[in-house]
Design a protein around this nucleic acid. Structure first.
Lengths: 156, 156
DNA sequence: GGATAATATGTCGTGATGCGATATATAGGA
DNA sequence: TCCTATATATCGCATCACGACATATTATCC
């Protein structure tokens, strides 16, 4: 294919596995796929009048795990941000009329998050198109995962 | 499982497919996986003294497609950002001693990007750990893709 | 071949957003 | 009670992508 001698990998240099062009291409393509998905998502969100972050927050709240409650802390964990970043995000969501803060009577430190009807509508529409996009991405993602497995198998 | 009547999907409301809890959970989990990967990536990059964006740029340059050249424009397309965002990113990369601008003699509007030895070292190390992380993510990702296919098949 | 459009890169000011440090309120345990 | 942990909130800062605009080079059209 190429003349790259590292292309077949499987050899070692020092303590690290020597990487070849295929490895870099694989990782680069994977990031590219992720970026394309996020770009699609952001475009769809903005077209709906939301920011990407707001959409992601609504989705996390709507799709809350059965064993958890949709609090600020839960949101922070699911979005992988610091809790105060989640606070600010919720501030903006409340201001936009997408979420209401409902104090938890059982533990008055906590605040439960509920979606407004407006948020439900937006989220339903966005989720439909996102499921379709996910379906479109599927083949490319599967092929990349196959390649990755192949490379890892060759190596180890 | 749950009492959610929309959980089985497959029914229509207006022109849109009615979504159920499973759909929202699926999308939410997918975003969560992506976020976890990006968080891993950012942590690894920062630990190596780079920003996530810088790492991504180095990877795009190193894993450049065979039919393309690593220019500012190429970088912008692969990172899905506007060209001037790529310009600024390259500015920072040059300042950090990770990339050098090489004017293209054939087309003097263009600038080719080359990695420095330092960038090559960082990228090799980061790529090794990223391939491992990708391998760890594989099962979860495949399961989600399976669920997605299942849902889509039920629907139509 | 000179005007004009298209392409590639660069500059400047702005806005969104996450973070560190810090603060307040509540809950639980010694 | 006192101390610690938890949950949420506030403030200032830094990063970074963007829109609008600018410059240089190349291609195209009469």
């Amino acid at each position: 294919m190429t003349a790259d001698p590292a292309n077949q990998a499987g050899m070692r240099a020092g303590s690290a596995v020597k990487l070849g062009t295929r490895d870099y291409r694989l990782l680069s393509e994977f990031r590219y796929l992720i970026r394309c998905f996020l770009e699609f998502s952001e475009t769809a969100a903005v077209r709906a009048g939301l920011t990407a972050r707001q959409h992601q927050a609504l989705l996390a709240i709507k799709g809350v795990r059965e064993d958890a409650a949709p609090t600020i802390g839960y949101l922070a964990e699911r979005l992988r941000v610091q809790h105060h970043s989640a606070v600010e995000l919720v501030d903006r969501l409340v201001e936009a009329g997408l979420v209401v803060r409902v104090p938890d009577p059982g533990d008055r430190r906590r605040v439960k998050l509920e979606l407004t009807a407006s948020a439900e509508r937006h989220l339903a529409e966005l989720s439909t198109s996102h499921l379709e996009e996910l379906k479109r991405m599927r083949p490319a993602l599967l092929e990349l995962l196959d390649q990755g497995e192949e490379i890892r198998t060759r190596k180890g």
